[in-house]
Design a protein around this nucleic acid. Sequence first.
DNA 1: ATCAGTACTGGGAGCGCTCCCAATACCACC
DNA 2: GGTGGTATTGGGAGCGCTCCCAGTACTGAT
Lengths: 351, 351
Amino acid sequence: MLIYWKPGKLMPLTLEDVARLSGVSRSTVSRVINHDPNVSETTRQKVQEVLDQIGFQPNLAAKGLVSGKTNIIGVVIPTNVIKIFSDPYFPLLLQGISASCNALGYFVMLWLSEPEYERHMITQILHNGLIEGVIIASVPIRDLIVNSLVDSHIPFLMVGRHPLLDVSYLDVDNVQAARNAVMHLVHLGYRRIATITGDLDQISGADRFQGYLNALREAKLPFSQLLVAEGEYSEEGGYKAMQRLIKQKPEAVFIASDMMVFGALRALREADLRIPEDIALVGFDDLSSSAITNPPLTTVRQPIVKMGNLAAEALIEMIETGSTEKKRIIVDTELVVRQSCGAYLSGAALN
Amino acid sequence: MLIYWKPGKLMPLTLEDVARLSGVSRSTVSRVINHDPNVSETTRQKVQEVLDQIGFQPNLAAKGLVSGKTNIIGVVIPTNVIKIFSDPYFPLLLQGISASCNALGYFVMLWLSEPEYERHMITQILHNGLIEGVIIASVPIRDLIVNSLVDSHIPFLMVGRHPLLDVSYLDVDNVQAARNAVMHLVHLGYRRIATITGDLDQISGADRFQGYLNALREAKLPFSQLLVAEGEYSEEGGYKAMQRLIKQKPEAVFIASDMMVFGALRALREADLRIPEDIALVGFDDLSSSAITNPPLTTVRQPIVKMGNLAAEALIEMIETGSTEKKRIIVDTELVVRQSCGAYLSGAALN
DNA sequence: ATCAGTACTGGGAGCGCTCCCAATACCACC
DNA sequence: GGTGGTATTGGGAGCGCTCCCAGTACTGAT
């Protein structure tokens, strides 16, 4: 891997060195590394042996400079969601992206962007010549970063659809999933159903709220603004939203993220209300802790790690095929029924 | 930033283009960009104007190739901790690292390494010519990745000390912090003090356990293996460990991470034990949720985001000064006393 | 033996930048 | 006007790689 060129000075090997060691030319070594079929089997083996023995790793900067292939993708999580970065959603998504990138030989460059650096950052990402594509998650609906991305002509994929622009994205059907969750409450007999929404500037927040509205309409239940509280996707937001909702005495609440449910549970515990007897809850995400709260949460499961995998794979495919066709990937969700919705209350306690 | 070179074909600008636009040479533009003082003020302004106007961004691959400066650091979180990546510790650390890198003009390349790719990954990190330095967090004590890092002569910094090798690191004084936490319990009058340890293959886990032992010795309390349960730093581990400990009827438990405390709380709730009346608890980390559990947690506060900041800043300083001197950065912790330790029980209820 | 065709190999050019050295401009002073 | 010094500028070389084109070696058919 490394040779001592001058005493004390460590020099990385180059293609030329490998060529010398294996008695062929720089070009042939390059061909072997890049699996060019135009190499005789004997030569290939000879070179491969040297390659393996010294653990040769080509210089990515040089490769990137000449060919544009750097195998680096950017992952951007913008400004305003940083504060809720402790929601396990982001680490899980990252984990999925990272795993697929490892498997496909790509590198991940991470930007947790902050307001003051955002403009500068975008420029750096798009034009430093290293990034081949970008995954961007949880963008606020009106964030201009998406427009920059579109203008740049760099392949990119949003995790979460964009309501206005024609871009590639991966998403769950939040409207339908939320509608199903609320209809589940309806079928259990609840009539006065409230909701704690996520950040309505996020398309996922808006979509889940729309799903709630759709279900009410479908069930011919009246809508009341008093039964809606914004929770901003944070534990604290969920806590405060539930405190407000308690006064309205809802029978059930659809909460747009499990993180907010944790906050809501805290508010309910403080108010000495029982779940699901006094108030039934349905969440969204199915985080690993959601199965072990008291009571266990009925919630919409999103396969977050899997979504990370798919996002990375889709982006890499876009990069490698050079396709400019816009991808729309919709991942299935599943309503996981546990105790918090009251489905397992003894007898037909409701209605 | 971009010009249309041929209809339909988007070409990034180069130094030469900027030179032409501002009527100077490539070299002079380079000097302006890199703040070389050997440029007349008039020329500097003229060039800077063009630079700003087109938002020029130099090609990092070219720069990296010739100068070795890429302003990219690697952040590695190895294999076995991935499964507990949902512990907010990692996102917070990442956030701190990312923020400082943004501020100092560095990029973060992220590796959440998995066993099957680990060897390959190390090679890539160390020898692709892009990474100028590495921050590595939560390495198991015996992980060979550290040895590879040492051999590579690339600047790197561990978050968490290494017990054997002479490397740069940033850490809290886990031994002392744990000792103080346990002594706090001792001073409150508890005698039968148990512990739930973290992963003992992590130096932090081992150190916190050592701190527990030190406190027992100092307080002349007997040590019993029955009062020790390994919790592996996960919620689930904390839950199971506490189930085991309950049978030993400890008066108080020192738990080596708040995440494990959450699991322990669940076990205690199921066993209908009151905190702190039946069992007092002290945790470690002070995650944001730790203040809002029921009861609020007494815990050792680590400034995790700050640690990320410091780690990035220290590594970047190592890179830029070329210093090979080993850094040892110890960050202060603080015992945050809330309800779970029983410090606020009415009267001198204990002892 | 000659030739075309195929399989493989070698080396020049050049990606966009920094580094270095040489060239030029400018200035003060004799 | 000439001289030497300093401030500023320009351009060649070359980082390590890929791409392309021009060899070279070998094959089988004429």
